[in-house]
Design a protein around this nucleic acid. Sequence first.
DNA 1: AAATAGCTGATGGTCAGACCAATTGCAAAT
DNA 2: ATTTGCAATTGGTCTGACCATCAGCTATTT
Lengths: 247, 247
Amino acid sequence: MREIDASNALSDRLRPVARTSLSEEIIAQIMDLIQRNVLRPGDRLPPERELCKRFGVGRSSLREALRSLSAMGVVEGRVGEGTFVNDNQQFVQKALQWGMLLDRKMVGDLIETRLMLESETAFWAAQRGDKEDLNHVDETLAQMKGALDDSSLFLEADLRFHMAVARATHNTLLVSLLEATRGYLQEWIERSLAGEERSEERARLSLEQHVEIVSALRRGDGTAARAAMVEHLLSSSLDLRTHFPEG
Amino acid sequence: MREIDASNALSDRLRPVARTSLSEEIIAQIMDLIQRNVLRPGDRLPPERELCKRFGVGRSSLREALRSLSAMGVVEGRVGEGTFVNDNQQFVQKALQWGMLLDRKMVGDLIETRLMLESETAFWAAQRGDKEDLNHVDETLAQMKGALDDSSLFLEADLRFHMAVARATHNTLLVSLLEATRGYLQEWIERSLAGEERSEERARLSLEQHVEIVSALRRGDGTAARAAMVEHLLSSSLDLRTHFPEG
DNA sequence: AAATAGCTGATGGTCAGACCAATTGCAAAT
DNA sequence: ATTTGCAATTGGTCTGACCATCAGCTATTT
């Protein structure tokens, strides 16, 4: 009898057959529907019991699929109402959120990675941002100016500023990554800076730096925008490190 | 009778009660165990039927939790064997994988984002990489040299090179992100370059560029490393774009 | 007429028990 | 010593049931 062993060339072509579970199949199908815009954000899925018939599976398998999608933030189930497709696709967010929970050291890595991403973000925003994008950035700048005396509000506007810049790159992945990182850091930043003296002074300095960034963006000067962003991030992270000596 | 309406100060303190499902509770608990290193990668969880008793829940709830963790890549169930904690924490990978499935445009964004990340990666690898890290990089370089005539093998070694550089930064988040992006692009790159003429010539050029990067890393010259990496990535992505005109 | 209370059906969340298929480990047979 | 075959374990799936919640309708009260 002809044997098939490791030395046989055939064995290299013998890949393990794809043994995908029912739930994974269902996940893929629903994902596909969302991708092709058949299911749009806010839409309600058919009731579970009906989906069971349509997919030809038991309720367990279907629910395991829906639960997975729910854990990833794709859909959301509401008792008595139904299951709905979420508006914001927050995969990356969710993933980082869980990952962060797993690995505390990641906070340091996060700050560092954000610096990398945001500096280049500024560059591309200057290159690609259109008038509307820049107007949005300006709006957030105005919000910051109006919140100089409220550090919490100021930080929120600050966050919106950076997000507006990210959106100006027209790179959705970048936006997701920054939302994830900054969103996670936000709470921690707020706590670190609470009850801080000279908060208004610091806000004023921060505002100046943001103005500098916007100016570079308006000129379409990517290099200057990047430099201004780096300076801003370094200065503010330095501010944070004084509260978090282990960095 | 005293009413409670919107104008009552009390109403501000009435927050919606947290209604977390059983599976989410279980997910959080297992995540916590992994985070605290009680459950280590490769470990086998107790059988489902036993976990049910321990958690005091039905099997549905438990399985929905495990399925979610499985979809996120935290654990992996094998019929007849058990459920195991995955070695590599591939949250980001999985997330991007799903996200990519949702948004085809993301491929372009991915290439762009990778450029941002990898250029800075080279910089930090030069700054922080120790001797051992650089030796690993050298190993992959040798593998590339030995695979000049096999484009598939060459690409694999190429991937390992970039990962080794990433690990030299000692930033785990960065490693995850690059693994996710590059891993996803790999298959597509391979397809694009298959049956290409002058593949050996291109490999030789690519190798030169990699040598340049290593040289800068060895000198600890972050700026030069970044520059070399950018040149390499731009040149190779240009190569790709000829196969993918819509970029 | 308007506001309120109560009912009903639909729906997601959970449970219990059953069966299937894959895997492992051991014992029997060769 | 190797192979074969059986039994137990385990994840995967199905079914039917019950609960809590919510939306919408109806009947009651004001």
